[in-house]
Each structure stands twice: as C-alpha cells, then as structure tokens.
Design a protein around this nucleic acid. Structure first.
Lengths: 340, 340
DNA sequence: TTGTAAGCGTTATCAA
DNA sequence: TTGATAACGCTTACAA
C-alpha cells in the first residue's frame, strides 16, 4: 500500500485537492470540476465533494490554479495616490465590481512619476494579472513596450487620448478647463486667480482654461502652484498668496474642490464675501461640494461610474464577452452652485 | 537534437526561466539563483543572466514561484471601506511599506459586516497571502477558525483587545470617547448633542463618552445616528435634527471630523457661534481639521504610523526577523483647537 | 459523467 | 559555484 509521501512530519499540511478527492472517493479532477464547473458534474457528486471540502477544511490554491490555467483572476490597479479624495471612489467602484465578478484587486501606488509607474507595472506583471488598470495616459516608452508585450488587457482611466494602450475610459481635462473659463467669463469675471496643484492632469485643465480666457483680451491672470497632495490648507494659503500679489481678483479657479473649499474658507475668514466679491470654482464635485457654505460650483466627473465601467470592460474582455477596445469619453458636468 | 516542445504555434510564448537559461548557456536553477539570491552566484554569471533577461524580455512568474517556494510575497488587507478618509492614510502607509519590502497588497473591502469579512477572507486565503491585515477585532467564529487554521501571520488594526488573533496595533475607542467627554465636562459643558455614525468602533467611543458623562449627574444628552459613510452633509443634517429636538445644547460631539466640519458649517450658517454658543468636537484629526474655520478640536490617531507599523510587523514575522505577537497600543492625542 | 496523464514555471534539495 | 531532479497543487486535453 502506497503511503502518503508527505506524511513524515506531524505538522498538518494544508489540505489539497488530492485530500478532498481521497475523502470523497473521487478523483482530483472531478473535485476540481465540482468546484469550478459544477454544471459538468452530477448533483450527487457535488454533494459528496462539498462534504469532503467541509471535512478537510480545503481552501483552493490559486497560485497553483492560476499557473495551470494561465488565468490568475487578479486585476492590477495602479493609481497615483490612495489617500486622495479624487481617486477613492473610482478605486472603491473598481473593487466592488471586480469582487462581484470573482476577481481580486492588486492595488499599487505609482506616485506622480511615469518612471515609478513603469517600475511598478514591471514587477506587477510577474503576478500575471488578467488585466491592468492604469491611471492616466502618459507612460514611459518602456512601460508601453512591456505592457503591450505582455498582451494583457489594459484600461486607462481619468484621461482621454485617441491612442490608448488598449481600452480607455476618461474625460478631457482640456475641455473641463475650457468650460470653467467659459462659464466664469460668461458671468462677467475678468480678474482671475488660479490655485493649482502640480500634477499633469491639472496642468491640462489649466491649458483649457487659458484657451478660454484667451478669447477675452482684457483678462488678467495670476496663479499659485501648490504642492501635492492638494489640501484644504493649501487652498487657504494659496488664496493668501494670491491676495499678497496685490492684483485685483474677482474669480478664483482651483484645480480641485478641496482647494476651493480652503479658498472659500480663507476668503470668508478675511471678510471677503463669496461669491459676491469673489467667485470660487473647484473641480471634482467631491462629496462636500454640494453641502459647503456656500456650496461649491464645480466640474463634476462620475468617478464611480468610471471605476465600475473600467472593471466591467476588463472583465468582459478577459472572459471573451467582448473583443473591442473602446475609447469612452465619460464626459463631465458643469455644476452651478453658490460659490461662482 | 531535442526540439522545443512548445514551439508549434507561431504566437510568441512569454519567456520562461528556461528561455533565459538557454540564452545564457546556464541552467534554469542558476538563473533563478542569479535573480533571487545573487550572493550565491559568481558576478560574471549574474552579468550573463542579466543580459539574457534583457534579450528575452523575461518577466518572472510569481504564480509558479510562489507555488514552489510557498511564499507568495502577497499581503491581503481588509478594510471596511476604501472611500473613507479615516482609512486612506493607513492603507497608503501599508502600501508604501510593503512596496519597500518587496510585497504586493491585495486590497479588499468588507463593508461593516463580520459575515462579509469572513467570506472575503475565506476567498482571500486561496491566494496564499504571506500575511493578512484585518481592520478591527470583531470577527465571526468561522473567520477565527479559518484564519488560525491557515497559520498565516495576521495584524489587526484600529482597535484594541487583550486577545487578538495574532498581532495587533490599535487604540482604545472607549478611552477616546471618555477623553472627549472628560474634556468637554472640564470646559463646563453639560448639554450634549451627539452626531454619530452607525459603526461598531464609533459605538465603542460612544460608550466611553457615556462613561465620562455619567460621572456628572446634571448632564443631558441627545443624539442622532447618521448612516455610513459619515459625510459633511450628514453633519449638517445631524445638527439640524438635534436643534429640531428642542433640547438646549452647549456641546456637540461627532464620531468623526467630517461630521464635525458639517456641524460647524451648519451652526455657523444658522448664526450659532462656534465655540462661543456651541462647542463642536470631532474625531480623527483629518487633514482639514487643523485648518478649518474655526479649527476643529478633535482626538487624533496616528493612522499613518499604524499602517506602517502593521506592515512592518507582518514583514518581520514573515521573514523570521521576529517571532513575537505584540499588542501595540498606539494611543491617541486630544487636540485642543478652536471649536471646543 | 468521471478519470488519466501531462504539463504550468518555478524553487528545494541534494549532488557534483 | 553550478546543475539535475523532484516536487509545488492545480487544470488542460484526451480517454473511457
């Protein structure tokens, strides 16, 4: 009688498919089927397997399963920051959707550097993720090469380009900036102050804003660049710095709602009435924007939907339910509230 | 001459260790060593391997590696929510530290249900994580059984108990609640209003607060429970509801700074001066608390440090640098600012 | 519907 | 310092 080759030590091995097979009097393959493709297995057999699973305390090994099947059920998500109100809804939405579809999320932080992102993705691919979500469309040539070579489905989010790596769901930062400028010009504002975070997507929004303001020759514009992460405190000091520059101001544009909230707070504290004396505009439509006093006029993006869609696009492609590589412009909404 | 068994199709397989071995004229095992334990390999050999890696575009397969070595270099992190300002710093800190030590983070959302957490962890373990971070100390018996059986290092965070599953780094919610009550009593407040989120750790803080207020017989207390996630808007409506109850109030205690910010905003909007007519106290010392107008008195927790330490504890234990199972009380700080 | 055999790509172990 | 061999635990492909 063949003895268990691994039963030498007394430490209880973690049970394997073979253990379940033994306990149920079936073959490992049948157990595997019962667990993964139950429709191919007789109901009575499934019951036997489940009972054996319960008895043995079996937990599948997805390292082994992924190696054999070449499908890891793992999605890698790369974001610039986790502790950034701008991205958390998207991350949560991705996580929720992936969970519902049986995937796990490997979450990685790339900071705001393309080189870091490239390094991260290179090591990430050693997990053989079934799909990858990248924030933004600017990547190093090395990253492009590596990821295209890996032939893994990719979704880029939070930006727009006609030439994505694979799939894309995002929006135009230029258009958003333009819309903000256009709106404020329409309200009669001409003396602009910008409180702007030092990241590339914010810079794109600024370009759009410039374009809008350029149509009006009598505009003035001063700006303050604040370091990342953009905080309410930065909004306050940003406004102080703008005031200190001495230029007349009638509208403040901020690269995020968080900065806008700070700017409003500072203005109010200094007795400058928002919006009567100074309009303030944000970006992102974060949770507090609608309920601030005064409520914050802003440009909203459906970041929840963006995450959910990104996850869906990936899962569908992985599962062969789609072979397309769509470029989805999720758009944005100008939300007129009290602050501008 | 033995031909490559897999070279049938024309689609370029992803290169394996064997390909690198061939390209460098070495054995797969030596290539593996050069990559993972270079100190055991001659410098010249390492160079050869690196060149072969470059040429072949080799990316290690950690599914295979993890299966063979029984070490996945994966840490599973389970949190109630991602899009919650309370946890994002901890998550980010964990991610940063794990990254620095060569681990990847599998991030999972359990909501606020123990049952969901148990399910999540059960499927999580199929990834064979080298360690697990759990938020909170309340788990179903099934979870306890499963995770102890898996013999995987665990750190529980954000709470305190003398009987953790394994390691623990957190703080006492009761003490925090007590400290808040004690502080406000000391300031002479007797008419309390609570705006409180419906989660268990918040409830523990409330218990501590009750204990403190019980020492003073002439206290009154009314409260409003707000749904999760706690938002600024909920803080505003919460205060309105408290006002509507008609009880006299001189101090509002909120289960988070976000709620406190909303309460302050609502009070100010209604012409109720904070703190002169109404004190408002928060919890968490979130980024905006120090810079709000008025700045928010609160109880601060070093959530960044908690995350970093949790990751360090795990990594040290996994790597055998420590065999202890410490229980670390990270403490808290009462931060007196303008709002109370 | 179930079973057998042969990998999947790596590392532990022992030998050279 | 390097190499040969046998796992690691599962699934694909094919057979019964």
């Amino acid at each position: 009688m063949k003895s268990d080759k691994r039963a030498k030590g007394s430490q209880p091995r973690t049970p394997t498919l073979e253990d379940v097979a033994r306990a149920s009097g079936l073959s490992p393959m049948t157990v595997s089927r019962a667990l993964n493709t139950p429709r191919l297995v007789k109901a009575a057999t499934i019951d036997k397997v489940m009972e054996a699973v319960r008895i043995t305390g079996y937990i599948p090994n997805l390292l082994a399963g992924g190696l054999a099947s070449r499908r890891s059920k793992l999605i890698a998500v790369v974001v610039p920051q986790i502790n950034n109100a701008m991205f958390v809804d998207t991350i949560q939405a991705i996580s929720d959707e992936l969970d519902a579809r049986g995937y796990h999320m490997l979450l990685c932080v790339a900071g705001y550097s393309d080189e870091t992102e490239a390094d991260i993705v290179a090591t990430l691919l050693s997990r053989r993720p079934d799909g990858v979500v990248l924030t933004g469309i600017h990547h190093t040539p090395e990253l492009r090469k590596i990821i295209l070579n890996a032939q893994v489905p990719v979704v880029e989010i939070w930006d727009l380009t006609p030439t994505p790596l694979d799939m894309l769901i995002g929006f135009s930062h230029e258009k958003i900036g333009f819309a903000a400028g256009d709106y404020l010009l329409g309200k009669g504002h001409r003396r602009f102050g910008l409180i702007w975070a030092a990241d590339r997507r914010a810079a794109q929004r600024k370009n759009g804003l410039y374009d809008a303001l350029a149509r009006q020759t009598d505009c003035t514009l001063s700006e303050v660049i604040v370091p990342l992460p953009a905080s309410m405190a930065a909004g306050r000091t940003g406004l102080r710095q703008l005031f200190a520059q001495g230029e007349p101001l009638d509208a403040i544009v901020c690269s995020s709602d968080t900065l806008a909230q700070g700017a409003i707070m500072e203005a109010t504290a200094q007795g400058v009435a928002v919006p009567q004396q100074l309009a303030v505009m944000g970006f992102g439509d974060l949770a507090f924007a609608a309920h601030n006093v005064p409520s914050i006029s802003t440009l909203g993006v459906d970041s929840w939907k963006m995450g959910k869609e990104a996850a869906t696009l990936l899962a569908d492609k992985i599962e062969g339910k789609s072979t397309e590589s769509p470029i989805i412009d999720i758009g944005f909404t100008l939300i007129e509230r009290d602050s501008a």
